[in-house]
């Protein structure tokens, strides 16, 4: 399977926070033959072990994506909803969404005096029915919809939904496939509920007691017109995280990452992210503390239906990750 096919398959799969069964099965099937051991834990994290002699390393990429949860169905069959994870109501007008069972809908808005009044409470989901009973045949309260988008390739750039963090999942899958006899004991953890508060990583790290933690996730960039001041660009390589809201990366982990990149001649960037966090935020505070860091794949338009990343960054991410895992660590 080509990297791009893995990415396509994973980004197009359904799997909002708390409803990761589908994406988990998809990943499980892909990696089964490469794993030494597979566990699904209480919260639904998929934990895949590739044995090695060295240190226990926990890699984390989250499977879940942001979504919309149905909270009410009115007599005419319109659905009201709330957000699962960080979704802005402004992105939703006219957006198309899909439920686990394949039901599709679009998002409409009440009449507004001003766009400033646009809040979730003003939006509704139209699934093409005209009565509450008809709606209930397709969708129930508590069901979660996700963006309905295909993954496109634009030259070396990839455009699609849930690159956050199916890109990370793809990097883990590809790395696992290419990894022969790693120098370390590696746990590839596909986590749940990152978007609602890095929850899956917390319980998985507690279970695994790793020596090192490394999340693979996407990060923002500062390379678009009048963007925030951030020193990360698409296409300049994976980023070694220095800090975000939830973690200040451990110096030892940063060093391991830099050395691996330099040894393999992989371009990399350094990332200071002012708002946002990843699974490493939970991992590094597990039990007595776990030295942790993050390898980030630069990504534009995060949490929108059209996230964009560069395939070269992703491929270099795989190389860098392999380099790290193949290094004997102290």
């Amino acid at each position: 399977m080509l990297m791009i096919d893995i990415i396509k398959k994973l980004t197009e799969a359904y799997g909002p926070s708390g409803r990761e069964e589908g994406i988990r099965d998809t990943i499980k099937k892909m990696i089964e033959s490469y794993a030494d051991e597979i566990i699904v834990d209480t919260l639904g994290n998929l934990i895949v072990r590739k044995k090695g002699p060295g240190k226990k390393i926990m890699l984390a990429a989250h499977m879940d994506e942001v979504g919309l949860i149905v909270t009410f169905i009115d007599e005419n069959g319109f659905l009201r909803f709330s957000n699962v994870g960080g979704v802005s109501p402004h992105l939703l007008l006219g957006e198309r969404v899909i439920f686990q069972n394949g039901a599709v809908g679009t998002i409409g808005c009440e009449k507004l005096e001003s766009m400033k009044d646009l809040k979730f409470s003003k939006l509704y989901l139209d699934i093409g029915v005209s009565k509450e009973e008809e709606a209930r045949e397709k969708v129930n309260i508590g069901d979660v919809a996700v963006y309905y988008r295909n993954c496109e390739t634009l030259g070396s750039r990839i455009l699609g939904k849930s690159l956050d963090d199916r890109i990370g999942c793809s990097v883990l899958v590809q790395t696992l496939m290419e990894l022969n006899e790693p120098a370390n004991d590696v746990y590839f953890v596909f986590t749940v509920q990152e978007e609602v508060g890095v929850r899956g990583a917390r319980t998985a790290a507690y279970r695994l007691k790793p020596h090192y933690g490394l999340a693979v996730d996407v990060t923002r960039t500062g390379d678009t017109p009048e963007s925030e001041t951030m020193a990360v660009s698409l296409g300049k390589g994976p980023a070694i995280k220095i800090k975000d809201t939830l973690i200040i990366s451990h110096p030892a982990v940063k060093k391991i990452m830099k050395e691996a990149a330099e040894k393999e001649g992989i371009p990399y960037q350094l990332e200071v992210l002012e708002r946002g966090g990843t699974d490493s935020g939970a991992i590094h505070l597990s039990r007595e503390g776990v030295p942790s860091g993050v390898m980030s794949i630069p990504c534009r338009y995060i949490h929108t239906p059209s996230e964009m990343a560069d395939l070269e960054d992703i491929k270099n991410g795989v190389k860098l990750l392999k380099g790290i895992l193949n290094q004997p660590l102290s």
Partner: peptide, 16 residues
């Protein structure tokens, strides 16, 4: 923390 090195060698900063 230094968040970016700008043209002219000026440093942008992020709070810790």
């Amino acid at each position: 923390m230094v968040s970016k090195i700008e043209k002219g060698g000026f440093l942008r900063i992020s709070p810790l």
